[in-house]
């Protein structure tokens, strides 16, 4: 068991990040090497400055709101929570005083954000069972949602699981110690595999790793392509 834990917590993490970054760079290079169409593909009426409107379109999804307000609500909530959780993970490694306005140890709502994320993910998943989204969806779409769901569930409920065991044994301080050794390329999983709820951490990291490796080769790349695409539409 220990070997598996270590494999997931150290080499797999490195591999995942490598695949993630290399994959993204590869995808972007492949795109940039293609010739640019010289013509405009924008939609009218135009509004200036185009880049600001493209950013608004990217981050506020006005078209979705007009067409499907319920989906829009879940999409907004989902992406916002994702952003907050991303910041939360940064806080696990570094002190970010800016985000400590409300002092906290366990980041952001003790798993509450994770619940919101999970609910949104289930919503996204179940709408894929209804036509016409059902007819559009391909296995990749379900796969990515399920993967993300698993990552989120084990990550966000880690602190809840912690309460079932010796609460003080393993918490953010231990996570941080572990992550910092990873970052320094002197990996040492330290105390993160001793507590009863370590399995939560290991599963979270495992699914997270998979997620990172799938990212560059899936429609998750929409997160990176959204801005240039919206810029195209705005001209």
């Amino acid at each position: 068991m220990d070997t598996i834990y270590t494999l997931i917590l150290v080499p797999m993490v490195y591999l995942a990040f490598f695949v993630f970054f290399a994959g993204i760079i590869w995808r972007i290079t492949a795109l940039i090497r293609k010739p640019k169409l010289p013509t405009t593909l924008k939609i009218y009426p135009e509004k200036k400055p185009a880049i600001l409107w493209a950013l608004t379109d990217t981050f506020f999804l006005p078209g979705v709101r007009r067409n499907n307000p319920v989906l829009w609500f879940f999409l907004m909530v989902f992406h916002l929570c994702l952003l907050l959780l991303f910041i939360g993970h940064l806080e696990l490694v570094w002190d970010l005083p800016m985000f400590q306005m409300i002092p906290h140890e366990i980041f952001l709502g003790n798993g509450f954000l994770g619940i919101i994320l999970s609910v949104s993910l289930l919503f996204f998943l179940f709408r894929r069972f209804i036509s016409p989204t059902k007819d559009l969806s391909v296995p990749e779409d379900y796969f990515v949602l399920i993967l993300l769901f698993l990552t989120v569930i084990f990550g966000s409920e880690m602190d809840w699981a912690r309460r079932w065991y010796a609460y003080e044994e393993m918490g953010p301080a231990e996570y941080r110690a572990y992550l910092q050794t990873l970052l320094a390329f002197k990996p040492d999983i330290g105390d993160v595999n001793i507590s009863g709820h370590s399995f939560m951490l290991v599963l979270h990291v495992f699914f997270g790793n998979l997620f990172l490796m799938v990212f560059p080769f899936s429609n998750l790349m929409h997160s990176i392509f959204a801005i240039p695409l919206n810029k195209l539409r705005r001209g």
Partner: peptide, 26 residues
């Protein structure tokens, strides 16, 4: 046909289905 723009269009679609009933045909 694979210009940068077209490849972007082909590379991206989350199959969210928002576009479905915006097409007069559907």
């Amino acid at each position: 046909k694979l210009s940068r723009q077209v490849q972007l269009y082909l590379d991206t679609c989350s199959r969210c289905g928002v576009c479905s009933d915006t097409c007069h045909v559907y």
